[in-house]
Design a protein around this nucleic acid. Structure first.
Length: 684
DNA sequence: GCAAGGTC
């Protein structure tokens, strides 16, 4: 029996169907399907893994954070634990009968390691002569068949490179995470974490926040006017544009103030073509979907769901070029229903279809595109929103460029020149189906030189330069990609992790005090882990390991030495690190003054994990307040006028947030409760 | 209760 091993069930099913010409049986014991058929005269089984089926960890004896010197983790030998037991069992069972094993995992570095893990588990020997490797860049019949016709061997150097990354990430991550948590006494649920990807990502947000804080706005002025002709109004600006000299601005304004008429002195038109957008990779997909208000993690979870239901292609991809094997015409035919019908038919009537293409062409997966038609009723509003975006983007990539006519006017107002511009979509092309999310200038009335205009609202407007913008989750993911941080599959998870650990608040994405304190300390004493260079350096080393120029052992040795010297510095400053972080964290937890004794009130968690507020002088002062356990709460610096307890803002699922006193016994609160405005607060 | 990378 031949055993074919794939990275996931979906790929297993597809490969089995291609090799068997759809003549196969499925056997499903537990949650692990196995596809059986006859292939080249031999019984063949195909099974899918679930990505990595083993996980690196430290030996059991080192699992206690308090009882282990973090530094001892550096030279510890990580152990491999099975993380997918049902898969492992099935794999061992089938490999017992196998005369050969064909590794058909994804054609990338992690795929090589995932395949190697499976072989190690199945046969205990990576160099076993019964093991072969099939490499295909897309799951099309031609590609798959030809890859199985020219089987090669596992690339152990490539797998080694991936394993090196695993070890370095675990050793650095665990050592620094435990050290920082121990140094600041933040253990259990409140631990602080450090990692090669998460820390530089958090540092991006902290740096941006610092830039915003340090930003000093520069004032400037604009002389503006509103024009009207034939009932159509439009705005114009003095030709000097942004004026940085207040005196000059005032002078210009004084010349035109109170004007009631203007005259068109020039009309110029030019045409601009706007190329269709390129096919969706994960980053651009998240960025486009992010404007819907969903978090990156939520978007990916919806995409995952659409993928497993067969509505869209694989959502984790870096590819922005449709592969040759993708039948665009057939895809259009299946989509040609409901709201997409007109667009599809229009495209299908063409002799040739020329899709747009992005800069990055990879071979693992196609760009994200719709695979089947689905209606809004079938998907529900939330899923449909994401699906509709994918369909429209796909249709846009096959469509013509849009043409826009831009009109620029020059207008004389009491001898001063003003300008205005407007645009008209003269040929919508791809814009008829896809909204690029940018606002166009409104159109202007039809005008010619010498035409008179009514002028109103001549104004001198005060402006100031704006600080840099905070990252949205979409733009953060784009920046991570640019810097090489994380992968298409992990970037959204990293952001989610930073939010869960309370280093980052979403919406808008900004660091919390603990996030800032953590990065502040790391930048001072262990700068390397907060910089993207660590990742690019690791990438270089991995390439050299894969190319046979470097040994895994020497890279690991160097990495461990480096971490030792970082730990030298950290240990020397352990006390300062602890007090720096704790100082910042304490101020994060202070919500107001205790009305009983005047000391700080703190937000804390009870032994059972419930949040509440208590006096910092507990047990000397026993004043405490319950908090609602669900939903967001924020604290204002105000006191209740009735009882002097601190005020808080409650954010509800529906309706606007509202301010209330923390004191359940307060008369002001009683009225609100009767009105049904608050949820129940728990006992603490 | 540590990382980041696969996948569900």
């Amino acid at each position: 029996m031949k055993l074919i091993i794939c990275e996931k069930d979906n790929a297993a099913k597809r490969i089995a169907s291609i090799l068997s010409d759809d003549d196969m049986t499925v056997e499903k014991v537990g949650r692990v399907p196995v596809y059986r058929f006859m292939w080249e005269g031999e019984e063949t089984c195909v099974m899918g893994l679930r990505g990595h089926i083993i996980e690196l960890d430290f030996p059991k004896g080192m699992s206690s954070w308090e009882g282990t010197d973090p530094r001892s983790l550096i030279d510890a030998r990580p152990v491999k634990n099975v993380s997918e037991h049902s898969i492992a069992t099935k794999l061992k069972e089938l490999s017992g009968e196998a005369s050969s094993i064909l590794v058909a995992t994804d054609f990338d570095r992690e795929g090589e390691l995932i395949g190697s893990e499976a072989v190690e588990m199945a046969l205990g020997d990576l160099e076993d002569k019964r093991v072969f490797r099939a490499r295909f860049s897309s799951l099309t019949p031609d590609e798959v068949r030809s890859s199985f016709n020219k089987l090669t061997r596992l690339d152990l150097a490539l797998a080694n490179a991936a394993e090196t990354r695993q070890v370095i990430d675990l050793v650095w991550g665990a050592t620094l995470t435990r050290f920082i948590s121990l140094a600041s006494g933040r253990l259990g649920h409140a631990f602080l974490s450090v990692g090669r990807v998460q820390s530089p990502t958090l540092a991006l947000l902290v740096d941006r926040e610092k830039d915003i804080r340090a930003f000093e706005p520069v004032p400037y002025w604009r002389v503006e006017a509103r024009f009207e002709r034939d009932g159509i109004t439009f705005d114009g600006t003095h030709l000097d544009g942004d004026i940085h000299d207040k005196v000059r601005a005032a002078l210009l304004f004084s010349r035109v103030k109170g004007a009631s008429e203007g005259m068109v002195t020039s009309v110029t038109k030019r045409n601009r073509t706007e190329k269709p957008p390129v096919p969706f990779n994960t980053t651009q997909f998240i960025r486009a979907a992010n404007s819907s208000g969903y978090s990156a993690a939520r978007i990916m979870s919806i995409a995952e769901d659409l993928y497993t239901r067969g509505f869209i292609s694989y959502p984790r991809t870096d590819n922005t070029v449709y592969p040759k094997g993708l039948d665009l015409r057939k895809t259009l035919e299946t989509l040609s229903q409901g709201p997409y019908r007109v667009h599809c038919e229009q495209l299908l009537s063409r002799e040739t279809l020329v899709p747009s293409r992005g800069e990055k062409e990879t071979t693992d997966h196609p760009p994200i595109y719709p695979t089947t038609f689905a209606s809004k009723d079938e998907l529900g509003p939330e899923r449909f929103k994401i699906y509709d975006l994918v369909v429209r983007r796909f249709l846009a990539t096959l469509n013509d460029p849009a043409r826009i006519e831009i009109t620029s006017l020059k207008i004389d107002v009491l001898g001063e020149p003003f300008s205005s511009s407007g645009s008209v979509l003269t040929y919508p092309g791809w814009r008829s189906v896809y909204d690029p999310g940018e606002k166009d200038e409104p159109p202007l009335p039809v005008l010619s030189m010498g035409d008179g205009l009514n002028v109103s609202d001549v104004s001198l407007s005060d402006k100031e330069t704006k600080p840099p913008k905070r990252f949205s989750q979409g733009s953060l993911i784009q920046e991570m990609e640019r810097l090489g941080l994380g992968t298409k599959s992990t970037r959204h998870e990293i952001i989610q992790k930073l939010i869960q650990r309370r280093f980052v608040e979403d919406n808008p994405t900004r660091p919390t005090l603990s996030g800032e304190a953590l990065i502040g300390s790391l930048e001072k004493h262990a700068k390397h882990i907060t910089e993207p260079v660590m990742t690019s350096r690791l990438e270089q080393d991995m390439e050299r390991i894969a190319g046979g120029e470097l040994a895994q052992s020497s890279v690991l040795m160097e990495s461990r030495e480096m971490l030792h010297s970082i730990m030298d510095v950290l240990e020397e400053h352990k006390a300062v690190i602890g007090s720096d972080i704790n100082g910042a964290l304490r101020s994060q937890d202070i919500v107001g003054k205790c009305p009983r004794c005047g000391n700080d009130l703190l937000v804390v968690r009870s032994m059972r994990g419930k949040r509440y507020v208590r006096c910092s002088k507990y047990p000397n002062c026993s004043r405490s307040y319950p908090l609602p356990q669900k939903g967001k709460v924020s604290f204002t610096s105000e006191q209740c006028p009735n009882c002097k307890s601190p005020m808080m803002m409650l954010y509800r699922r529906r309706g606007a947030p509202f301010a209330t006193c923390m004191n359940m016994e307060c008369p002001s609160r009683k009225q609100k409760d009767e009105a049904g405005a608050t949820g129940g607060a728990p006992d603490v």
